[in-house]
Design a binder for these strands. Structure first.
Lengths: 191, 191
DNA sequence: TGAAATTATGGTCAGCTGACCATCTTTAGC
DNA sequence: GCTAAAGATGGTCAGCTGACCATAATTTCA
């Protein structure tokens, strides 16, 4: 049904029966470049797995500046947790940076799967732990690192994003201006 | 055994039997002001509940500046997740801002409780969800807010901390200098 | 392929921010 | 209660950062 996703789940250690149950409830969808999954103010109704492409979770502040909370490349999951968990309007938007193929689950379906497929539950807990660890690291960096250190950490952590993303999005993710990012890159060229 | 904690757990919806099992494995400990639970480089071996007082999770950067990841007041939990989950050296330290009374569980004991007390597991999942929501909010603010907005949000979110914490710790939590914080407060006095 | 949009870079400048230092006030702990 | 330590504020200044604008390069997509 969704062969790439099923391979991903098998590699993550789920048994065939579990893979089947999860995969059966997924609905495939394609997003064009810049197409939105939902906008700020709407409710995040689905759990989303990215089969191919690249999504980003972002917010446009009062001044019109974009701020990026997360990127979601192929073989990763995305949603706005707070909006999804509580089914309340989201503060953020999720959209496609590249043309993307995604799988969507209704919240009620995925909740049912979590309750009935222990292997999935366990797997999801691992994803949550990774998420928490990364959030902590990001908060610590945002508190303590200089713009240059933030950029260095970014390309260490996500080496392939540099070629896939416009620099302005990297700046929007790091919380620095595109000008500062350009200056850092310029300075590095001279080394 | 630990009456305040047991009241907290009951109010959180746990049945008497569950309360008893969790409480029985807790070890009480007192911390003096500025005493550390553990230092960066050590492993976070316990899950900690704060009965009274106030702890903080922090890190000292290369330049000697303190950065604060989290405060944990009475009736809240604290630990360094990554160090605790994987039992690896922590990047951060946890210490007492005020003289504090805490309860500690060994990881193996708490893991056992989570596996055997479904009500605790469910409760812990709720705490994790809150934690994730708050981390997201904090990242978004760190990306998008001005120092003044960060301070405003802080006193909205934690109204009582202003009276309990030295300003330099608030600055260390917000990722701004004490000087900038003083300037903001000075400007607000004139309004 | 070609036109339009997006992106990256650079110049300039105002002003915010942090570092350093000094002073005064408050708090901690014996 | 008293003494020492910690904390808060202010002055000053250098310099980093972002806003604005222009230009050149690249990419998109019809």
């Amino acid at each position: 049904m969704h062969p790439e996703f099923e391979t991903y789940l098998r590699r993550s250690g789920l048994a065939e029966e579990a893979v089947r149950r999860v995969s059966d409830l997924a609905v495939a969808r394609k997003l064009r470049r810049n197409e939105l999954l939902f906008s700020a103010g709407e409710i995040c109704r689905h759990k989303v797995f990215v089969v191919s492409g690249l999504l980003h979770t972002f917010n446009i502040s009062a001044g019109g500046n974009q701020h990026i909370l997360q990127f979601a490349p192929e073989n990763s999951w995305t949603l706005d947790v707070e909006s999804y968990d509580r089914q309340i309007p989201s503060q953020v938007s999720i959209g496609a940076v590249e043309p993307s193929e995604i799988l969507c689950w209704q919240k009620k379906d995925f909740d049912m799967l979590l309750a009935e497929v222990p292997q999935l539950k366990k797997f999801a807990e691992g994803l949550i732990a990774r998420n928490i660890h990364y959030s902590r690291k990001r908060i610590l960096i945002s508190l303590s690192a200089t713009p240059e250190e933030k950029y260095e950490d970014f390309i260490q952590t996500f080496p392939d994003y540099l070629a896939r993303l416009p620099l302005r999005m990297i700046a929007a993710y790091l919380g620095i201006s595109i000008k500062t990012l350009t200056r850092i890159r310029h300075a590095q060229l001279l080394r």
